[in-house]
Write a protein that binds this DNA or RNA. Structure first.
Length: 820
RNA sequence: GGGGCGGUGGCGGAACGGUAGACGCUACGGACUUAAAAUCCGUUCUGGGGUAACCCGGGUGUGGGUUCGAAUCCCACCCGCCCUACCA
């Protein structure tokens, strides 16, 4: 009886060995080419399951593979450890956020280790520890110094019942508080922003440098930045000297304007509202102010609005137009005022219908007969009823009217971005304190660099303060301090930073994690960065990646790095889904939905190698994939087969020369395929190629017996599988009598000559349909192949009574005959 | 409304414009076993013909197009999922 494959007996041993050998620790001084592999560091929520494991299995495979390819690989790990769940745990379970976080980190670390996921733990970073957030605060100060951090009033989600600020994810069910269900409103608070808009153009332009990013992520970022070219022009107001600025991308439609709409918060609203409309307008403004953002932005809401009594003047034709306010006009985009052109904008069309306004056509649709429009014509066309510009194509009209407005000082070409500045203030305890003081005499004063870190106090009541302030405001020892400039009394800022700030620079810290003098040393960072391969969930396609790109560009401008872009190649993997027994729907695997497959269950039943093999085999890694318990069984069977292939005695027979040659061909073809598949991130087909080789080896062993060809095949199979199933391959490698760890071996090379086929199936098509197949040597030439094809009995039968028009020969594939 | 991703057997999925369905799962039949587990062998898109190795037809969401040849490229549409949301 041979030894059985019992993964639980071999896996812990190798995990300890790899860690003891520091096999996956990267040295800064290494002759080999560097490779920085990175998976997005997780929030330590404490519930790792097989859904998360896809990310880590991919990252681990890639790092192990590249190491075998001879790279000096750095594959670090850390924890995005500030955030709301820890604070909620403090309220609900009466456990300090730091303890809760620490425990979760320990749990997750042990689960990663159980799965054989190897990192350079010597570079571990934890964003909630002072030796990390000290530098997060330092970065804040640098942005402040450069004018990239500023404070202004901004609305926050506010629950009037809990008297607390809510994060967007705490606003659920169309604008209700997740705690008490009360309708969420807005509260204006003085809050800190980072001026990412200063970099909008560069963030957009440099997307073209990111050739190895998925197309969809680049498109999402492009849309998020939302650059639009247009004209900003001024409208006079009947009876006032004031002017209203309006931005439009369709200045060609300016002669069709019949009304103007202001945002409810527009500064001129109060002044321009006439007495008879005042009551209605004030009620509307109040309602808009109270409505939560989600409500306000809901597309289903009708395009309401109220007339304020005032009139604006169209600068092009002197027309007098009513001014409305409506909440679909945003104060935060453009000028907070729009020109209403009902004939050529769907929203304006609906608004005009509702308020009984005229809908004059100024861009003629093709074949327009002068009739009223059934719906807005938003496409291009020929300009009509547009004074001297009538008759022009609309795209030319845009240029001509823009020129005209610039010449006459009415307006100017202007670019607006959808991208807004990054609000980083959080009225929360569990985050990096913003290193700012408020002195009665000196005003806003940054904390001195040598005073960092501003340490988060431990003794805090986490309950809502009732004022919207952070719980830190209730800690006098924290709040009261002295001003570094004048020595007088000062108060500390009590807001903490958005956790996205912490996660926007951690990949710099990995390159120099123990530096106590600086966030990182430029030489070390520039030696490792940019990240060669970044892997994570597509849910971070916009915010995290945009903020990280922004930070990198700021760091570059500060001289802290020489790189322009932090992530050279990006891979976004799909989610793992599973049938949810509660809803009977296939949903994303998640603890809250109750459809998780826990790591421990997998390891106990099948071992880490099976779990890893399956998660890689389940489907294309960039797409969502459904978990299947039977599928896991299949991967387990495969590894058991690999085990027996090596461990069981072979037949006593002596292999034939032909069979050996065929087996070596399969071996070398598999090496080629697996290598190419891993390079292009097709892990599922890499696994199936290994399965095929295994099947071929088993068959050879049974029918032919042992020999050098079989040994070569087994060795190759183990090496190819090493990054996928690291434990079992390590164990079998040792049992083969090889001395050193399989993970220190070189990746196998294939020989084209051995991988080359001697024969292929020549397909013969007539008029595109397959009519015959014949085995031929690969050396066959075109003439020979066509002659052979035409001589085939089958083909002659199909061709009888027809004449051949043309023959096409595709080497190594087919002969295609066109006949009629 | 905008954007993205996808639609191929009973299921997950393979397939440089060139033999559609690799590999795996499931199911069924068989071998081994007192029995089970494990393992191994065979069948598994579909209609028709043949004792048979095989042969013929249909087939990649729908409808067109390009091509000797289309799952793959182009146009129009339908369906599903995800993200985003009144951006002037």
């Amino acid at each position: 009886m041979s030894e059985q494959y019992v993964p639980q007996e071999i896996e812990p041993r190798w995990q300890e060995y790899w860690e003891a050998e520091r096999l996956y620790y990267a040295s800064d001084d290494d002759e080999r080419r560097k490779l920085y592999a990175l998976v997005m560091f997780p929030y330590p929520s404490g519930d790792l399951h097989m859904g998360h494991m896809r990310n880590y299995a991919i990252g681990d495979l890639f790092a192990r593979y590249k190491r075998m390819r001879g790279y000096n690989v750095m594959n670090p790990m850390g924890w995005d450890a500030f955030g709301l769940p820890a604070e909620n745990a403090a309220l609900q379970a009466d456990i300090h956020p730091s303890i809760w976080t620490e425990q979760n980190i320990a749990d997750m670390k042990s689960q990663l280790q159980k799965m054989g996921i190897c990192y350079d733990w010597g570079r571990e970073v934890t964003s909630c520890l002072p030796d990390y957030y000290r530098w997060t605060q330092w970065i804040f100060l640098q942005l402040y110094d450069r004018g990239l951090a500023y404070k202004r009033m901004a609305p926050a989600n506010w629950c009037p019942s809990c008297k607390t600020v809510l994060a967007n994810e705490q606003v659920i069910d169309e604008g209700h508080c997740e705690r008490c269900g009360t309708m969420v409103t807005k509260k204006d608070l003085a809050q800190w922003f980072f001026k990412i808009t200063d970099y909008a153009d560069e963030l957009l332009e440099d997307l073209s440098l990111l050739e190895n990013w998925p197309e969809r992520v680049r498109v999402m970022q492009e849309n998020w930045i939302g650059k639009s070219y247009g004209v900003e022009f001024r409208l006079g107001i009947d009876g006032y000297d004031d002017e209203i600025g309006a931005f439009t991308t369709r200045i060609d439609t300016v002669y069709g304007m019949t009304f103007v709409v202001l945002a409810p918060e527009h500064p001129l609203v109060g002044k321009l509202t006439t007495a008879e409309h005042r009551e209605e307008v004030e009620a509307y403004v109040e309602k808009a102010r109270q409505a939560s953002e989600i409500d306000r932005l809901s597309a289903e809401v009708e395009k309401e609005g109220v007339f304020i009594g005032g009139y604006a003047i169209n600068p092009m034709n002197g027309e007098r137009m009513p001014i409305y306010i409506a909440d679909y006009v945003l104060m935060t985009y453009g000028t907070g005022a729009i020109m209403g052109v009902p004939a050529h904008d769907t929203r304006d069309f609906a608004f005009a219908k509702r308020h009984g306004l005229a809908i004059p056509v100024v861009i003629a649709p093709p074949g327009w007969d002068g009739a009223d429009l059934e719906e807005a014509h938003v496409e291009e066309g020929t300009m009509v009823n547009s004074g001297p510009f009538s008759g022009l194509p609309s795209n030319e009209g845009i240029e001509r009217i823009s020129d005209y407005m610039e010449e006459h000082g009415i307006g100017a070409r202007k670019v607006y971005y959808r991208l807004r500045d990054w609000l980083i203030s959080r009225q929360r305890y569990w985050g990096a304190p913003i290193p700012i003081l408020y002195c009665e005499g000196c005003g806003t004063v940054p904390v001195a660099e040598e005073e960092l870190p501003v340490v988060l106090p431990m003794e805090v009541d986490f309950h809502p303060t009732g004022t919207g302030e952070s719980p830190l405001a209730t800690v006098p020892e924290f709040v009261h301090t002295t001003c570094p400039r004048c020595g007088g009394a000062a108060r500390r800022e009590t807001d903490t930073m958005d956790t996205f700030v912490c996660s926007s620079w951690y990949y710099f810290r990995y390159t120099d994690p123990h530096n106590e003098k600086a966030a990182w040393g430029k030489e070390k960072a520039d030696a490792w960065l940019p990240v060669d391969q970044y892997t994570g969930g597509v849910e971070h396609a916009i915010l995290h990646l945009m903020y990280s790109r922004f930070f990198t560009k700021v760091f570059r401008d500060m001289g802290l790095t020489g790189i322009d872009e932090p992530f050279a190649r990006l891979f976004t993997q799909g989610m793992i889904t599973k049938l949810n027994p509660g809803t009977m729907k296939v949903e994303k695997m998640s603890k809250s939905k109750g459809n998780v497959v826990p790591i421990d269950d997998m390891v106990d039943t099948y071992g880490a190698d099976t779990a890893r093999t399956f998660i890689l085999f389940v489907g294309p890694p960039e797409l969502d994939a459904e978990w299947s318990d039977q599928g896991v069984e299949g991967s387990f069977r495969f590894l058991k087969r690999v085990w027996r292939l090596e461990m069981e005695e072979a037949n006593a027979g002596k292999p034939s020369e032909g069979a050996d040659r065929a087996l070596r061909r399969k071996t070398h073809q598999t090496i080629r395929k697996v290598t190419e598949d891993i390079e292009r991130f097709h892990f599922n087909t890499a696994v199936s190629a290994c399965m095929e080789l295994c099947n071929a080896l088993v068959a050879h062993k049974e029918k032919q017996g042992a020999g050098p060809a079989l040994d070569e095949g087994i060795q190759a199979l183990l090496l190819l599988l090493a990054p996928i199933a690291p434990h079992v391959t390590e164990e079998l490698w040792e049992k083969l009598g090889n001395g050193d760890s399989i993970h220190k071996q070189s990746w196998p090379e294939w020989e084209e000559e051995l991988a080359a086929e001697e024969v292929f199936t020549l397909v013969v098509q007539i008029n595109g349909k397959v009519r015959d197949k014949v085995e031929v040597p690969v050396s066959i030439g075109e003439e020979e192949a066509i002659e052979l094809a035409l001589s085939r009995e089958q083909i002659q039968r199909w061709l009888s009574g027809k004449s051949i028009k043309k023959t096409i020969y595709v080497p190594g594939r087919l002969v295609s005959i066109v006949a009629n």
